[in-house]
């Protein structure tokens, strides 16, 4: 489904993109993502398609606001039945709850449900309205970190099972990572769209890389013309790094390097050009270890393979081929 909306106030923005399967619109806070969803739902004045010109009550959308917004004075099944009419509404509501695996909690009040359960009730309520498009505002914001990957997985499975295109807006890279399609918003406009693989492999600028959760995105300036002698001046760390780009001398860039690509040396064995660093933090989780290393006023994240340990006085070198540069806006 093609979404094309233009909003004037309170933020001027224009967004045009395709929604297929579970699509995530990723953008920083204040970009107007929630505003866009509310515009599509007909809750703020805007022009665009689909549903252009229709009153909110006539738009076939299933809107799940941040925090799910269940009616606190209605039981779970009554929430789901809110969009339903007729004598069969209770039975239908129970069927929808069954579909999201919550039939047993039909009589519960929203306040007694967990964040994930509330989300599924809200999803059942939205689906019961028989929408053509699902709109989800920051669906991971209210979730418990311990269960959120599973809740996200269930949400996506249910969206796929419903067979309705879904647009989720978020600033959460974890949600972006599981999208069928990723749309990136920066400066109140769409700057990139594609599958998560495509977008992650080739972010169009530093802001997108930051949104995707890439670590080590920094500001710098190029010195020298493209070629072997070109250098990346990194003023906040007080160093110059050899770099290979096609960008002109003197331009300001966002640059980044993957934590795994940073080479770590022990001080005595380090090349003369290596950067001195001190360990600030060590992050250990099921996926492995990452170190936050202080370089001047900045921090570089470095991933070490499991068999290596961090030397006492580390020196870092950044292979020119691993550094990616984008001209700043």
């Amino acid at each position: 489904m093609r979404v094309d909306y233009r909003i004037e106030r309170p933020i001027a923005l224009h967004a045009s993109f395709d929604v297929t399967g579970f699509t995530v619109l990723l953008g920083a806070s204040g970009e107007g993502k929630s505003l866009l969803l509310r515009a599509i739902a007909g809750l703020v004045p805007a022009e665009g398609e689909p549903f252009g010109g229709l009153a909110a009550t006539r738009r076939a959308v299933g809107y799940l606001p941040q925090g799910q917004a269940l009616f606190p004075h209605l039981r779970a099944w009554q929430n789901v039945a809110f969009a339903l009419r007729g004598t069969q509404r209770r039975a239908q509501a129970l069927q929808w709850l069954e579909r999201v695996g919550l039939a047993a909690l039909a009589e519960r009040w929203p306040g007694t449900l967990s964040g994930g359960e509330q989300q599924r009730v809200a999803l059942a309520r939205a689906l019961a309205r028989r929408p053509q498009l699902l709109l989800l505002d920051e669906p991971t914001a209210a979730l418990d970190p311990a269960t959120r990957d599973d809740v996200i997985a269930e949400l996506i499975a249910e969206v796929h099972a419903a067979g309705i295109p879904a647009l989720a807006v978020s600033h959460d890279p974890v949600l972006a990572a599981v999208a069928d399609r990723l749309v990136l918003m920066h400066g109140h406009r769409i700057v990139q769209a594609g599958t998560p693989e495509e977008v992650n492999a080739r972010p169009v600028n530093g802001a997108v890389a930051r949104l995707l959760g890439h670590r080590n995105v920094h500001r710098g300036r190029l010195g020298g013309a493209p070629g072997d002698a070109q250098q990346l001046l990194w003023p906040d760390a007080g160093v110059a790094l050899p770099v290979r780009t096609k960008l002109a001398d003197g331009i300001e860039v966002d640059w980044s390097i993957a934590p795994l690509a940073v080479l770590v040396h022990d001080a005595p064995a380090a090349p003369a050009t290596a950067i001195a660093a001190t360990v600030e933090v060590c992050q250990v989780n099921a996926q492995g270890r990452q170190y936050g290393l202080r370089c001047g006023r900045e921090r570089l994240w470095v991933a070490l393979p499991p068999e290596r340990s961090m030397p006492a006085s580390p020196r870092l070198s950044l292979p020119p081929a691993a550094i990616r540069c984008w001209p700043c806006d």
């Binding site: 007909g42 809750l43 909110a56 009550t57 959308v61 809107y63 606001p65 809110f82 309520r125 309205r129």
Partner: peptide
């Protein structure tokens, strides 16, 4: 009363 709840009711196809 959270305004959002009234708006949700609208998006669920119910009249003001």
């Amino acid at each position: 009363v959270p305004r959002e709840l009234e708006q949700i009711a609208l998006t669920l196809g119910q009249s003001p």
